[in-house]
Simulated assay, not measured.
Amino acid sequence: MRAKIITAVVGAVCLLATGCGSETGTDDAKPKLAGPLLPQKVTEPADSPDLEPSASPAADATFAENVAYELEDKTLTMAGFAGETTGRCPKDLGSTPGSTATCTVTYEGLEVEWNVTIGEKGWSDNVVEYEAFPRQGILTRDGLARLLFGNNSGLDYALCNDIPKAVLVPLGETTYKCEEVLKGKEPFGFNQPVRVTDSGPRIY
């Protein structure tokens, strides 16, 4: 009987020693990253001037010139950050319902094409309704940063995959991703897709 008791105690000691060794290894292990840490550090941008086109149309501007000016405004909204713009529509663009045209807005040297369809008269004879859809989106690094910091007061910085100052991209999800890093926290690779809409950048 005495021999059996000694054997049992020795076995218990061995198990306890093994367990202690396992716990020490767990404490020393680093948290596993959810994804790769992205290389570009994006910080809060300086205040942006108002998102207004570079020049207003003259009092005697044509219908085409007024449409082009409004599309400059829409392009700035999509970019989310101030920049130099110019716009042009075909000179023969009129206010006849059903008319279609392609207008082009240049933002900081990048050309965004808009498909325009003229609608019916609005609430006044001087008001003409129209629809305009961009053929491609425009993403700006500062526009995205402005969105991120505007939505999250606790944000310290973001890590992204080398977003240019401004770039043409398809509407919707892009190849760019970012991780939002809160103050006092470390990044861990939770990288979210950057999306572009005609009303500005989004991340989710």
Rank of each mutant, 00 (worst) to 15 (best):
A3D: 10
A3M: 10
A3L: 11
K4I: 10
I5E: 10
I5T: 01
I6L: 13
I6P: 06
V9A: 12
V9K: 15
G11H: 02
A12V: 05
V13Y: 09
C14F: 04
L15I: 07
L16S: 06
L16K: 02
L16F: 09
G19T: 00
C20P: 05
G21S: 01
S22G: 08
S22L: 11
E23H: 10
E23I: 13
T24M: 07
T24K: 14
T24L: 03
T26V: 14
T26A: 08
D28H: 13
A29Q: 10
K30F: 11
P31T: 00
P31Q: 05
P31D: 04
K32I: 09
A34Q: 06
A34P: 02
P36T: 01
P36H: 01
L37M: 08
L38P: 00
L38Q: 05
V42G: 01
V42T: 03
V42M: 13
T43W: 09
T43D: 14
E44R: 15
A46N: 08
D47R: 04
D47P: 08
S48H: 04
D50T: 08
E52M: 12
E52V: 14
S54W: 15
S56G: 09
S56Y: 10
A58I: 12
A58L: 09
D60F: 03
T62L: 10
F63E: 10
A64C: 06
A64P: 01
E65Q: 14
E65W: 10
E65F: 05
N66D: 04
V67S: 00
E70S: 03
L71G: 00
E72A: 11
E72I: 09
E72K: 06
D73Y: 14
K74M: 08
T75D: 13
T75Q: 13
A79P: 13
A79K: 00
G80V: 15
A82F: 07
G83A: 08
E84I: 08
T85E: 07
G87R: 12
G87H: 02
C89T: 09
C89N: 14
P90K: 10
K91I: 08
L93D: 03
L93Q: 00
L93A: 00
L93F: 05
G98Q: 12
S99E: 06
T102Q: 15
T102L: 13
T102Y: 07
T104C: 12
V105G: 04
V105K: 01
V105I: 05
T106N: 12
T106A: 13
Y107T: 03
G109H: 02
L110F: 15
E111H: 12
V112A: 02
E113K: 05
E113A: 01
W114L: 07
N115W: 14
V116T: 15
T117N: 11
I118H: 00
G119P: 03
E120P: 09
E120Y: 14
K121T: 14
